[in-house]
Design a protein around this nucleic acid. Sequence first.
DNA 1: TCAAAAGTGTTGTTGTTACACCCATGT
DNA 2: ACATGGGTGTAACAACAACACTTTTGA
Lengths: 249, 249
Amino acid sequence: MIDNDGDPGQVRPAAVTVDLVILTVRHDELHVLLVERGKEPHLGRLALPGGHVRENETLDQAALRELEEETGVNGHLLHLEQVHTYGDPGRDPRGRVITVAYLALGPDLPVPVAGSDAQGARWAPVESVLDGQMELAFDHSTILRESLERARSQLEYTTVAAAFCPEPFTVSDLRKVYEVVWGFPLDPSNFRRKVTRAERFLEPTGEFRAPQIGRPAALYRRGEARLLFPPLLRSGDVADAQFTATTLR
Amino acid sequence: MIDNDGDPGQVRPAAVTVDLVILTVRHDELHVLLVERGKEPHLGRLALPGGHVRENETLDQAALRELEEETGVNGHLLHLEQVHTYGDPGRDPRGRVITVAYLALGPDLPVPVAGSDAQGARWAPVESVLDGQMELAFDHSTILRESLERARSQLEYTTVAAAFCPEPFTVSDLRKVYEVVWGFPLDPSNFRRKVTRAERFLEPTGEFRAPQIGRPAALYRRGEARLLFPPLLRSGDVADAQFTATTLR
DNA sequence: TCAAAAGTGTTGTTGTTACACCCATGT
DNA sequence: ACATGGGTGTAACAACAACACTTTTGA
């Protein structure tokens, strides 16, 4: 809201961008989509995909557009959610840039499409960024860390995990998502009971899929529910350890 | 992140502001701080306090500064948290304005200080805005609704409720906060057990406070814990009813 | 001694954990 | 037949809701 004012010269317009943390599970590992920067600053460095918000676009539309440009996938098929906005004065050397970060979750996506305008887009294991091996451009490592923690806690209280699974999927597929995102194994029997008991989380198709070996598994589609009740809680210890306060001071 | 480009003329810098949803509990009712607009557009209309982000300020600093200007209270005493960013092209008739919304929670604050630069700042019952009686300027009614829902769910999983209580406080004071924010009564005995059992939520002072009539109550200070485990869940029905998807589509 | 608010106990129910066990399939 | 993953049963335990009950105060 433009208001108080009386401070001419102290305020100046800023560039507004959206950056995307696009997560997917590949080969039982959590991956994030990164692009190689084609110019300074941070030329050649890996960064989160993103770009400017255009003149007649909402923030959500900009995020959706970028998502489709980068992945070649219709963004409506994925979970897309605004997470946090970053605007420190020094975060981009070229001037004041406000970035609205979005979290996108999707099933194992096709390798980034050639037709996209991304410079060398690629999937990178989230681990390699988190453990400090790979430092991203700008404050993108921070954005990734914070968005990932959002994703982890979203898995507890909502049904978003199913967004990682191409339909139709089995209970085991879904469990794998939880295990990969949270980083520890879950008891298959107890997991099954919780997710199947939750109202409208999973909708049975009546079909089955045979694994390479073993009993065929029932197939499901995503249900209508967005909130998961009762929630699938990580133990207090785990949550605490992962929790980095978003609160000031 | 300034990147892809190749679209000159399609992007233009925007004004960046922070708007504050400052909540407090007064007379057993949830109140929000509103200011009367001193100019067009929406002259005379009530709006959330807020203002421009200055040149060498982080977003958090801007929010903290506005908070102190509006309430005259040292913002570090309150809970302050970024919630969501609003940037629809049409939300301000004067041009593109990106607003980062912050949620602030605090104990019953002094009536807005004369020295503040706010035009007729006042506390308004949140109810009066939610039930459609009072429509705020711009999209501020939406911002308030969405921020309130954030506050409500934060009460379940975190210890922020204590931010509403001036220290030292009693278990009943804290319960009142939950009842007022959630809008329904809680069982006093069960509530007490949950909050006193949670690790480092409440720190006993050893002191007592006598109510007008009745047995004196033990006094507490806010503990170190930020996450509440196990969480204090509203029933699934309630949460579902309040839940308005933050997801696209 | 009564009203009012603080605080404890109790009981039935529901959810969780850890694991044993059965089921359906391909080789 | 057996290995492999899918799926059910169960028993000990923890959390929860509802509500009876005791405690401590001011009037």
